[in-house]
C-alpha cells in the first residue's frame, strides 16, 4: 500500500520576470516503509516537491494543480490548521541548509519539547524523558539538552535536527540534502544513522540529494528529476543495471565508482535549463546525445515501461527493451 501518492503535481514561483515552473507534472508514489530517493541537478525542483508536500512553499509559490495523497487524503485540499497538525507529527521534514535550522536563542532540548507539546498533551517531565531517549537514539549526549545551538558542532546539530524530526513518531520523513553542509566523515555517520532509524521504525523515507551514489546506498527506488520533471523512476538495482533515460545514463557515468570497473568519467555537457523559459519538447533535448527531431517538438509522455520502471523519453521504446 502506498503511503504517499503524488499525482501530476504542478507548481510555480511567481517572480518579476515571470513564472518559474519548478515542478511540472510530477507523479510518483512511495510505499509504506520504503525509501525513495529523488536525484537531480541543482535547481531541478527537488526542494520544491518537499515543500509542496509539507505545504510550506514561500509566499510567491503557487500550486497549479495535481494531488498529493497522504494515507489517501489529499493534502492540497486541507486547511491550514489541519495541515499544521500533520506537520512534525505525521510528516517530518529535514530541510536543506539546516545548519541554521535551530533558533539560536533557545535551548536545543526546549526546541524539541516545544515540537512534542505542539502535538501531544504531555507534561514537561515526560517530554524531557522523551527528548532524552531521542538524544540517545541519534547518538547525542542527553547532557547537551540544556545547551544552545552554537555550542553544538555541525554534526551534532544535524543529529539534533533528526531527533527533532522523529520526536512525534512521524509516518513519513522527508530528508532534503540532510548532509550537504557537513564534512564527508560526519556525512557518512549521519546517513548511517538515518538508515538505521528508518529500519528500526519502519519509517517511510524520501531522501533528496544531487548525489546519486549517496542515494544508491540509502534508497530502494530512485526518481531522477530534470528541470522540474521526473524523467525516470525505477528500483535502485534496475536503475543502476540498466538506466534507460539518456540523462540518467549521463548522470551515472559522471560519478566515479570505487567498487565497479574503472571507466571514464564523462560529465554531461551543457547547462541546466532556465525554468523561466524551459526548452520546448523534451527539456533535456539540447543536451541529449540521442536527440531526434521529435524531441524538440513534442513533450515525451511519462509512462510505465516495465514493472516499476517509468520513463519520459522519445528515444526509448518498448521494442528496444
Amino acid at each position: 500500500m502506498s503511503l504517499l501518492e503524488v499525482k501530476n503535481l504542478r507548481m510555480c514561483y511567481q517572480t518579476s520576470q515571470g513564472l518559474i515552473k519548478a515542478v511540472d507534472g510530477v507523479s510518483f508514489e512511495v510505499k509504506k516503509g520504503e525509501a525513495l530517493g529523488l536525484v537531480g541537478e541543482s535547481g531541478c525542483g527537488k526542494s520544491t516537491i518537499a515543500l509542496s508536500i509539507m505545504r510550506l512553499l514561500p509566499p510567491n509559490g503557487r500550486l497549479l494543480g495535481g494531488e498529493i495523497l497522504f494515507a489517501d487524503e489529499d493534502l492540497l485540499t486541507k486547511d491550514e490548521e489541519e495541515m499544521r497538525k500533520m506537520r512534525g507529527r505525521r510528516i517530518s521534514l529535514i530541510f536543506q541548509a539546516a545548519l541554521n535550522a535551530l533558533n539560536p536563542v533557545h535551548r536545543v532540548g526546549d526546541q524539541i519539547i516545544e515540537a512534542i507539546q505542539a502535538h501531544e498533551r504531555m507534561g514537561k517531565e515526560e517530554a524531557l524523558r522523551r527528548v532524552e531517549e531521542l538524544y540517545r537514539l541519534v547518538g547525542l549526549d542527553p547532557g547537551m539538552m540544556g545547551s544552545f545551538p552554537h555550542q553544538y558542532s555541525g554534526g551534532m546539530k544535524q543529529r539534533a535536527i533528526i531527533a527533532l524530526a522523529l520526536s512525534c513518531n512521524p509516518e513519513l520523513l522527508i530528508a532534503d540534502e540532510p548532509t550537504t553542509a557537513l564534512d564527508v566523515i560526519i556525512q557518512d555517520q549521519i546517513i548511517k544513522e538515518i538508515l538505521k532509524l528508518q529500519k528500526e521504525f519502519n519509517l517511510t523515507l524520501i531522501y533528496i540529494s544531487h548525489d546519486i551514489s549517496l542515494i544508491a546506498e540509502t534508497c530502494s527506488s530512485i526518481g531522477i528529476m530534470y528541470a522540474g520533471k521526473l524523467v525516470e523512476y525505477a528500483p535502485t538495482i534496475a536503475l543502476f543495471q540498466s538506466p534507460l533515460h539518456p540523462y540518467t545514463q549521463g548522470l551515472l557515468s559522471s560519478y566515479p565508482s570505487i567498487k565497479g570497473p574503472k571507466r571514464r568519467i564523462s560529465p554531461i555537457p551543457g547547462e541546466v535549463p532556465n525554468l523561466l523559459h524551459p526548452p520546448s519538447g523534451c527539456r533535456f533535448h539540447p543536451r541529449c546525445p540521442r536527440a531526434k527531431e521529435i524531441c524538440g517538438k513534442e513533450e515525451p509522455k511519462y509512462r510505465r515501461i516495465k514493472e516499476d520502471h517509468y520513463i519520459a523519453c522519445h528515444c526509448v521504446n518498448n521494442s528496444a527493451l
Binding site: M54, L56, G88, N100, N103, A118, H119
Partner: peptide, 26 residues
C-alpha cells in the same frame, strides 16, 4: 527569512508561537 522559522513551521507549531517565541523574540 531565517531557517529556524521554517523549522518552526515544519514542527507544526501554532502561528502565534512562531510569531512570538521565534520571530519577535529574535
Amino acid at each position: 527569512r531565517e531557517d529556524y522559522i521554517l523549522t518552526a513551521r515544519a514542527k507544526g507549531l501554532p502561528e502565534r508561537v512562531i510569531k512570538n517565541r521565534h520571530a519577535a523574540r529574535n
